[in-house]
Design a protein around this nucleic acid. Structure first.
Lengths: 236, 236
DNA sequence: CTTTCTGTGGCATCCAGTGCCAGAATAGGG
DNA sequence: CCCTATTCTGGCACTGGATGCCACAGAAAG
């Protein structure tokens, strides 16, 4: 039907759009690969060859986006933290720019535990990529380095998904609001991640002091303790 | 074989152990449900009924652990952040306490992408549970509350998994080392999460001071700046 | 002993996913 | 232009996970 036999190969996007329509109309499980084959004009066997599995059809565009983001990251020589923030922005942009697929997919994912797991696996891949990227371009103590990179990546992905879900739940909202909350979320993460992540290429000139103290300590005693702590660390 | 027909129902743990053995010996894909049925004495049909799917056999113990952790969390009236740290400790304890299953499962998961996704989905459930728990018991600005809870949960899970993977890679290492690195990781997360998460029921008595300063600033000037900053914040 | 309820096993069926092979489309070399 | 090599595609058969249906066993309740 949708795939008139004009000789040329049916575009991936065509197949994905038709499949998404079938999934939302009939349900994911009720939609068979044979049905998709009939609707798109691509044979059952070729669908498996090109996409791998039924789920993979739904996430084909997302896989492409992931590849794009990874390539972007590999080509980013800047300040690592900023690069990762920019990469997250790229991901959100990928979602916002393709609501025809991403929005119905979100509805399907919400309803279907199996698809939800698949979606989670995607974000885990982003998280792993970001974590590796950060761990590779940063100095600091060997063990702590990987821990800090992992935590920073996890925070970033979590904040990104927070904003993303907000948009997916009501995609008709103003894009500027979405981007504003994205910037706010990134700023929020930056506050938490920046103290523990220092770039490798730009050797740390800054130092970090963290003090936790009772609120009723009194500033004189606080100053005394801070002074002692700083002198001790500087002496080493 | 393993499941002598003594009348009683074959224990879940028996089935899981036998299945794990088959998975590691023959490979996950090569092991059929019929083979598991033959090895355990439980019929194929009953295996599907009791476990849901082949993957679910491998993660049955883990599902139980998850339920335990969630119940523990629901019954925790303490300081939310501490409760969540304790819950993470419970998860690690669950892994360490059952190496017969968790270690071979880790090897299987590493080798098999599909199982890896399943594992990731498990940790995502923990993260979601922790995030909800934190979001429900904390004050602060409405939008920022859920964001902060999500980021804190993500950081915590990431740090936990960092330690967990370290042990899974070499399970023969001293348990005290594992727990020490766990404590260190939790402390690391606490430093990042505590500034942005304050419990609702027990208003924060402790305060946190974070200062970033040039390494060549000199301690006198540092003390002066810290003093000024503290006085300013206390005055407000 | 009969009834009811729950768990179990056997059977048939559906369908995702894969290996195999034949044919079409495309590219390249003469 | 034709012939050939390569690649992509589609049809076919088959494995195996997963589900619905039904019959039966055992335990609890009457």
């Amino acid at each position: 039907m949708a795939g008139e036999r004009t000789g040329g190969r049916v575009a991936t996007r065509e197949v994905v759009l038709a499949s998404v329509r079938l999934f939302t109309e009939d349900g994911f499980d009720a939609t068979t690969m044979e049905g998709i084959a009939a609707a798109t004009g691509v044979s059952r066997r070729s669908l498996f060859r090109r996409f791998g599995s039924k789920e993979d059809i739904l996430f084909a565009e997302h896989d492409e986006l992931f590849s794009t983001v990874v390539r972007y990251l590999d080509a980013s020589p800047d300040d690592p933290l900023s690069s990762v923030f920019a990469a997250a922005r790229l991901v959100l942009q990928g979602y916002l720019g393709d609501p025809e697929i991403t929005v119905p997919r979100y509805r399907l994912v919400r309803a279907h535990p199996r698809l939800r797991d698949r979606e989670v696996a995607m974000t885990a891949r982003y998280q792993a990529a970001f974590s590796r990227y950060l761990a590779d371009r940063q100095d600091g103590g060997g063990e702590e380095r990987s821990l800090a990179a992992g935590v920073a990546a996890a925070s970033l992905i979590s904040a990104h998904n927070h904003v993303l879900r907000g948009w997916l739940r009501s995609p008709e909202q103003d894009r500027r609001e979405v981007w504003a909350s994205f910037d706010a979320a990134m700023e929020f993460v930056r506050r938490a991640a920046e103290p523990v992540l220092r770039p490798a290429d730009r050797p740390s000139r800054d130092r970090v002091l963290v003090a936790v103290y009772p609120g009723d300590l009194g500033r004189d005693e606080l100053i005394r303790r801070v002074t002692a702590a700083v002198e001790e660390s500087e002496g080493a």
